[in-house]
Simulated scan of single mutants.
Amino acid sequence: MVTVKLFAAAADAAGRRVLEGDWAGLTTEQLMQHLQQEYPGLARLTPVLSIAVNREYAPGDRVLNDGDEVALIPPVSGGAEDGAGRPLFEVTTAPLSADEVAARVTNPHSGATVVFVGTVREWTNGRRTVHLEYEAYAEMAVAQMERIGQEIAERWPGARTAIVHRVGALAVTEASVVIAVATPHRAEAFEACRYAIERLKQIVPIWKKEVWEDGEEWVGSQTGPDWMHPAGSR
């Protein structure tokens, strides 16, 4: 038995969030061909869907095994802990605090801590946002956040990173993501924090739905190769 999880626009297109079937032995590409026939609404997304198997991005020739968990990652615009037992990388429904996230990385060896706070804005391209709805493949999101933290530590020795993203319905001005990076010197802290938010937008499976006064839409290209923008610009 293989389990398929669908998120955001993919879940809307199929009308289902979880599928199960005897698909062991198929490649991920063959599985997608089968799902397109079973759920025609997925067809328009297939060229830009990314597929994860067991919470890792997988190529089209990956052969599925019994018990695998497949996730369809649509177009989109527990991890390590600090010394107090708080996760450095987290997906949560709770309101975010920049000071609290910064405290997770500040340490005696850091000379600078830079914090990025992404907030919900009211106007985008002349259209008024009522609120945003964020959705995540939480387990994989945390794993990819950890990957970003490892990349930063390798690129900027001594750097310590925390990334916390909120999901659910968020009102205008509320914080959707807080990233804190502490490094021995300030220049590296600024560079590493910018790197973290750009990588988060590239690889972390979190999506946002813009809810306007006159409609709603998942953010991100639904038809082209620019799908690699999780949650879009904040």
Rank of each mutant, 00 (worst) to 15 (best):
T3H: 02
K5R: 11
A10T: 02
A10R: 01
D12T: 03
R16A: 15
R16I: 02
R17A: 12
L19M: 10
E20T: 14
D22P: 11
W23K: 06
A24C: 10
L26T: 06
T27A: 04
T28G: 07
E29K: 12
M32C: 11
H34T: 15
H34G: 08
Y39N: 01
Y39D: 00
G41P: 06
G41D: 06
L42A: 04
A43D: 08
R44C: 07
L45W: 08
L45R: 03
P47R: 03
V48N: 14
V48W: 05
V48Q: 12
V48E: 08
S50I: 05
I51Y: 05
N54G: 06
R55M: 04
D61L: 05
R62C: 11
V63L: 12
L64R: 07
N65W: 11
D66L: 11
D68A: 10
V70Y: 15
L72M: 14
P75E: 05
D82I: 00
G83M: 01
G83R: 03
A84V: 00
P87N: 06
F89N: 10
F89Y: 15
L96Q: 15
A98D: 13
A98N: 08
V101F: 11
A103R: 14
V105C: 09
V105N: 09
N107M: 05
N107T: 08
H109D: 14
H109G: 07
S110P: 05
S110L: 02
G111W: 03
A112M: 03
V115N: 00
V115S: 01
V117W: 00
T119N: 03
T119H: 04
E122N: 03
R128I: 14
R128A: 14
T129Y: 08
T129C: 12
T129N: 12
V130K: 10
L132F: 09
Y134T: 02
Y137E: 09
E139P: 08
M140L: 01
M145I: 05
M145D: 03
E146S: 10
G149P: 08
W156Q: 02
W156H: 07
P157Y: 02
T161G: 05
A162R: 04
V164M: 05
V167R: 07
A169I: 14
A169R: 15
L170Q: 10
V172E: 11
V172D: 11
E174R: 11
A175F: 08
A175V: 07
S176Q: 14
S176N: 15
V177W: 14
V177M: 14
A180N: 09
A180P: 09
A182E: 06
T183I: 09
P184R: 09
E188W: 06
E188L: 07
E188K: 06
A192I: 01
C193D: 01
I197W: 01
R199N: 03
R199G: 00
L200D: 00
K201C: 01
I203L: 08
I203S: 07
P205H: 02
E210K: 01
W212A: 05
D214P: 02
E216Y: 04
E217L: 11
V219Q: 05
G220P: 06
S221Y: 15
S221I: 07
S221M: 12
S221Q: 10
Q222R: 13
D226M: 15
M228D: 15
H229G: 07
H229I: 12
P230D: 02
S233M: 12
